[in-house]
């Protein structure tokens, strides 16, 4: 498994990380090495072996439809880097017409 710098940039775009050129180059080699090691999982476990997502199988774990207290109004946005009038402030998402 050998990644190109374009592969790394593509994955960085998917992961929403604005990597520098140096980071892209370093990650190209590191990710290739790690994935080559991880590739060993292909040596065992044929397709008839069922995958395990959780070691302790619990099924149908639900919550009653009973309202619980929400956060006090001033606490919901208290952790936000930018808030305004009880709202989370972000850069404009929709372009001006």
């Amino acid at each position: 498994m050998s990644l190109t710098t374009d592969d790394v940039r593509h994955v960085a775009r998917l992961a929403r990380i604005a990597l520098s050129d140096q980071e892209v180059e370093a990650l190209r080699g590191e990710l290739s090495d790690i994935l080559a090691y991880a590739d060993k999982v292909g040596e065992v476990a044929a397709a008839d072996v069922p995958p395990t997502s959780h070691a302790y199988p619990l099924r149908n774990v639900y919550r009653d439809d009973t309202p619980q207290p929400s956060l006090p109004a001033d606490e919901a946005t208290a952790t936000a880097p930018q808030a305004e009038q009880g709202r989370f402030r972000v850069p404009r998402i929709v372009e001006e017409p």
Partner: peptide, 14 residues
């Protein structure tokens, strides 16, 4: 468990 009610101020049912 946040209640579903309409017409409140922003982010009060969070």
């Amino acid at each position: 468990g946040c209640a579903i009610d309409f017409g409140g101020a922003p982010n009060v049912r969070t």
